[in-house]
Structure formats: structure tokens, C-alpha cells
């Protein structure tokens, strides 16, 4: 049976919004297995460092990045568990669709009252 974490307080909205940008997804791919300093992340893009910093900020806000300071450097890595709410949403796609199917069919074909 599906595990439903009813206690998950974070709505997936912030995560979905954060994921809705290709640059931000690229950042997540860079740090999914390794911790990288901001400078090295920025070096992978043709964007300005400031633009990359903004993207990192959005990802941090959404809980998708863990930040660690080492001297003057800031190091980032993916917080995998932040994706859990999205996974839960995806697991509801077909059940939600079938609920609508049930409603559509039963509305269009109401059972005659039992005699």
C-alpha cells in the first residue's frame, strides 16, 4: 500500500516552482552526488555569477540545497529528501485520474434506483 506521510508540513509548491527552471535543475544535477562550492557551480554556466547565486537562493529556500561554510567558501549539496513531496504528488497522478473517471462514468450512467 502507498505510504502517505500525512505529517509532511512542506507543501510541494515551493519545490515544484524551484524545479520549474532548467538552470536550477542543472544546478541540482551538479550537486546531486558531490558537494560543490558556489564558484564552481557558477563556472558551469554562461550565466552571471549573480544570476547563479539567485538560482541557488531559490533552491535553498525550497529546501533543495544544503549549505555548508568552509572558511569563506559556501559549499552546496542536494537535499534528496526535499524531493519526497514531489514523489508523493506523482504517486497521486493516476489515482486522481481514476477518481475523475469514476465520477465521469457514474454521472453519465446513473444506476436506476433499486426496486
Amino acid at each position: 500500500m502507498a505510504e502517505r506521510k500525512q505529517s509532511t508540513p512542506a507543501a510541494p509548491d515551493a519545490v515544484l516552482r524551484a524545479l520549474a527552471d532548467p538552470h536550477r535543475r542543472q544546478i541540482l544535477r551538479l550537486v546531486k552526488h558531490s558537494e560543490l562550492p558556489a564558484g564552481q557551480i557558477a563556472a558551469s554556466f554562461t550565466l552571471t555569477q549573480q544570476a547563479v547565486s539567485q538560482h541557488i537562493g531559490v533552491l535553498k529556500q525550497a529546501g533543495l540545497l544544503t549549505e555548508r561554510r568552509e572558511g569563506t567558501r559556501r559549499l552546496y549539496t542536494l537535499r534528496h529528501e526535499a524531493l519526497d513531496p514531489v514523489r508523493e504528488l506523482l504517486s497521486e497522478f493516476w489515482p486522481d485520474a481514476l477518481s475523475r473517471l469514476k465520477k465521469a462514468v457514474e454521472t453519465a450512467h446513473p444506476r436506476p434506483p433499486k426496486r
Partner: peptide, 19 residues
Amino acid sequence: MTAEIRNDVIVATEHIKAP
């Protein structure tokens, strides 16, 4: 209505009052 997600397979079921 239930759903199960395991590896790369999603199984969803529904009971509908129509044949």
C-alpha cells in the same frame, strides 16, 4: 481508490458502478 508505487511501476485501482 488505492495506489502503489514501487520501483518504476505505478499501480492504481478504482471501483466503478458501471459494467
